[in-house]
Computed example of a mutant assay.
Amino acid sequence: MKLAFIGLGNMGFPMSCNLVKAGYTVYGVNRSEPKELQFQKQGGHIGKSLKELAQEADVIMTCLPLPADVEKVLLGEEGIIPNGKENLIIIDFSTVSPNLNKKIYAAAKEKNMAFLDAPISGGTTGAEAGTLSIMVGGDKEIYDKVLPIFEILGKNVYHIGESGSGSSIKLLNQYMVSAHTQAVSEAFVLAEKAGIDLSLLYEILNVSYAQSKIMERHYINNISKDDFTPGFELGLLHKDISLVNEMASSFDVTLPLGQKVTELISEALEAGLSKDDMSAMIKLMREKAK
């Protein structure tokens, strides 16, 4: 089985490398050539255009930062679906709206191709270890066919239901990630103002009801080191919470907390933090507390 992986970023690169290690023939495509060359050094193949891969690959996977990127790669004139062969399976690991998933699913079906939305959670650590959570929407028989691929990439793999359902759950995850990120930022800044040692605070909260993976991630990887090198950029979190609000609006659901968190993340982006890790919300809270 010939695979293609489009988007060799922080998540896509380790995921595609794990498929190579598992013995698959994998072609990698990325906007920047250095990442493709790095992938080649790991045993991957490069040098194919989207059109060529659409005709030659059996399964094409995408992991891209923005919905517009996904739409262009899959539906654009030079993209996969307009140029693909029948029975091609397309899997998108990106975080986009359920409505975009359904649009892509319908376009693929019209061309006798299959599409699965399969957003992921678990960060770069999970991508490297092959322990991601994968939430899949689309036809069950296609899911069953590519399950061995999912099981290389993730530890917790779920078929949710129809197209778009995987993204719906991912957006709910991102909603809570955003809220937890803000709560951690506020609590740790308040602790600093109160003269509480942050390492002691973390130790206690980590064995209390306030414990969360987000607190653990943000404190261990970033806050404790005062290093906000991105594992997941704050700008991408803003994109995700905006999609959450769009989803809520489509169901006439109000998210008061979500709206406030969106405002605060927008403020952080205006302060120049968009390329920092999402844990950098604490930097905005520190400025507000001065």
Rank of each mutant, 00 (worst) to 15 (best):
T95A: 08
S97E: 07
S97T: 15
P98D: 04
L100R: 00
K102S: 06
Y105R: 12
Y105Q: 10
A108G: 13
K109E: 14
E110H: 08
N112P: 02
M113V: 13
A114C: 12
F115E: 02
D117W: 01
D117E: 02
P119K: 05
P119T: 11
I120K: 08
S121L: 09
G122R: 02
G123D: 01
T124N: 11
T125Q: 11
E128C: 09
A129H: 07
T131L: 09
I134V: 11
V136P: 01
G137Q: 03
G137R: 03
G138E: 02
G138V: 05
D139E: 15
E141Y: 07
E141N: 11
I142M: 02
Y143S: 02
D144C: 00
K145V: 01
K145S: 11
V146I: 13
V146R: 00
L147M: 13
P148G: 01
P148F: 07
F150T: 05
E151W: 03
G154A: 13
G154W: 00
K155G: 10
K155A: 12
V157A: 01
H159E: 06
I160A: 06
I160Y: 00
I160P: 08
G161N: 00
E162Q: 06
E162K: 07
E162Y: 03
G164R: 00
G164Y: 00
G164N: 01
G164S: 07
G164D: 02
K170M: 06
K170D: 08
K170G: 04
N173M: 13
Q174M: 03
Y175W: 12
Y175E: 14
M176V: 15
V177N: 03
H180M: 15
H180L: 15
T181R: 01
Q182H: 15
Q182F: 15
Q182G: 05
A183P: 12
S185N: 06
E186H: 01
A187E: 02
F188K: 08
V189M: 08
V189T: 15
L190S: 12
L190Y: 15
A191N: 10
A191M: 12
A194E: 14
A194V: 05
A194K: 15
G195D: 11
G195E: 13
